[in-house]
Design a protein around this nucleic acid. Structure first.
Lengths: 128, 128
DNA sequence: TTAAAGTAGATGCATCTGCATGTATGTGGG
DNA sequence: CCCACATACATGCAGATGCATCTACTTTAA
């Protein structure tokens, strides 16, 4: 818990310094960019990111308002919708990564050897 | 991040099931119980828990309102105050621990061997 | 001694979160 | 076919958080 606090605080400081949106936005944009056709259903994003349903719903609102994603009706299921990344959204994800990547490297990578990082990942995986 | 999410969600579910106050309260109560005479200055709690100053200030308000701690003036420094655990506060910490301890054991302890836990702690310490 | 700078803590405001619940659509058993 | 139940997502409300700033007291240094 403390380690996560420390690391997160440092990364968020880097984000603030670069005037970037909240860190959490990255995860959603990333999942969308990875996904087929750059789109996912909200419940799929929810499963991938561990965001609570009501939080995701409102996070999508904010992303829409910033023009980073758009909602699209899905034919097969009248209850559902697609969340689609826009070009602006892809560009923003890339811009965020230009801070995020080096930040992770500085605050995590630089403190662990390759072997240690693998070990850590393996240990943490046991907790999920 | 994901591991912490998962574990925390499980522990918080246990807390909710036991109708306990937010998990964060525990850390403050614990630091106070550990401390000499059961009291600390807010800035000391801040350093120990990584709580932001403004969050701690209001968290203390809530603890006071529940009768778990009380504020006391400190003679030496007119700007400062002591935060002192009450008997109710000590009892609450114990009650919380009766859920928290087993919960940690179930969601963390049971998934790691003694050696793995030590390894994990050592790796995470490098990130602080 | 006294003004400038520092430290301890509180607080107004906007945003975010958790919780419960709402609306709309889909599905499966009788 | 249809009604009870399930699923997908939204939302009102209360409380929590982040940010900037404020007040009050202390220390420093000329």
């Amino acid at each position: 818990m403390r380690a996560r606090e420390s690391v997160l605080a440092r990364i968020e400081a880097d984000f603030k310094a670069a005037s970037l949106p909240p860190l959490g936005w990255y995860d959603v944009l990333w999942e969308l960019v990875q996904a087929d056709e750059g789109r996912l259903r909200p419940f799929e994003i929810e499963a991938r990111t561990l965001l609570a349903q009501y939080n995701l719903s409102r996070l999508i609102d904010r992303l829409v308002k910033e023009g980073l994603v758009r909602r699209e009706a899905v034919g097969a299921d009248g209850r559902g919708q697609w969340v689609v990344v826009t070009e602006t959204g892809r560009a923003m994800r890339e811009r965020m990564w230009r801070t995020y990547g080096p930040s992770i490297e500085a605050h995590v990578g630089a403190r662990l050897s390759e072997a240690e990082a693998k070990q850590l990942a393996a240990l943490l995986a046991k907790l999920r």
